[in-house]
Simulated scan of single mutants.
Amino acid sequence: MDVFNRNIDFNALFKFSHISASTQQHLKKVYASFALCMFVAGAGALRHVCVQQLNLLSGLGSLGLLIWLTATPHSRETEQKRLGMLAGFAFLTGANLSPLLEMCIAINPSIIPTAFLGTAVIFSCFSLSALYARRRSFLYLGGVLLSGLLLMLLFSVVNIFVGSTWLFTANLYLGLMVMCGFVLFDTQLIIEKAESGDKDYIW
């Protein structure tokens, strides 16, 4: 058998027959709002790099918008307003990150595009894994992931007094594994909430 002459259906990669059509539409909206936030946050960071402002104001503004967003109930009437709040929160969050981005640029400008591409690849791979996996198969990770977050917090506090490079590196890679696990967990949680009737793609 010549494996190179077989017909391959690449459209099968994007078929999620185990997910209902309404949930697939919901997922499209979720990822669209995620992409919007990413680009708006990038614009906020770029503007703050070009026009220096007080980080305290942008920090308080992002916190205020987050509280306002959580306090506003989801409905068809409030959908556009809540989407605007989310975009504003993303913009101010990007502005808050600009000092860190400036530091990265000063050290090595290639850090930012490398981090962006690496994050995009990891997020895409783990999201697809969660979408193709059997429903609810990764929801059990919730407790393990929260335990991992607590362990990271403990390592960080201990390392303030110890100052160990090894502990810092271990915490860094533990954080990478925990965040990858959260992509799996949150993607399946979004699916289950949508299947249960919760179509709020903004929060």
Results as ranks from 00 to 15, higher is better:
S124R: 00
S124V: 07
S124Y: 07
C125K: 00
C125P: 00
C125A: 13
F126A: 03
F126I: 03
F126G: 03
F126R: 02
F126H: 03
S127V: 10
S127L: 10
S127W: 01
S127G: 00
L128Q: 08
L128Y: 12
L128P: 01
A130I: 01
A130Y: 02
A130T: 03
L131G: 02
L131H: 01
L131K: 01
Y132E: 01
Y132F: 11
Y132W: 11
A133H: 09
R134V: 06
R134W: 00
R134H: 11
R134S: 12
R135Y: 03
R135K: 14
R136S: 10
R136A: 08
R136Y: 04
R136H: 10
R136C: 04
S137Y: 07
S137I: 06
S137R: 09
S137V: 07
S137M: 06
S137F: 06
F138E: 02
F138M: 06
L139E: 11
L139Y: 05
L139H: 04
Y140N: 04
Y140S: 07
L141Y: 04
L141V: 04
L141N: 04
L141W: 05
G143Q: 07
G143A: 09
V144W: 02
L145P: 03
L145I: 03
L145R: 03
L146M: 14
L146F: 14
S147P: 00
S147M: 12
S147F: 10
S147D: 04
G148E: 08
G148T: 09
L149P: 00
L149Y: 07
L149H: 05
L150M: 07
L151S: 12
L151Q: 05
L151M: 15
M152P: 00
M152V: 08
M152G: 07
M152I: 12
M152S: 09
L153H: 04
L153W: 09
L154W: 15
L154T: 13
F155N: 10
F155Q: 11
F155V: 06
S156R: 08
S156C: 03
V157L: 11
V157M: 06
V157N: 02
V157T: 05
V157R: 05
V158N: 10
V158P: 00
V158E: 11
N159P: 06
N159M: 08
I160H: 10
I160Q: 15
F161M: 12
F161A: 15
F161I: 13
V162A: 14
V162Q: 11
V162H: 10
V162I: 15
V162F: 12
G163Q: 13
G163H: 14
G163I: 14
G163K: 14
T165F: 13
T165H: 13
T165Y: 12
T165K: 14
T165L: 14
T165W: 10
W166V: 15
W166R: 12
W166L: 15
W166Q: 14
L167P: 07
L167Y: 09
L167I: 15
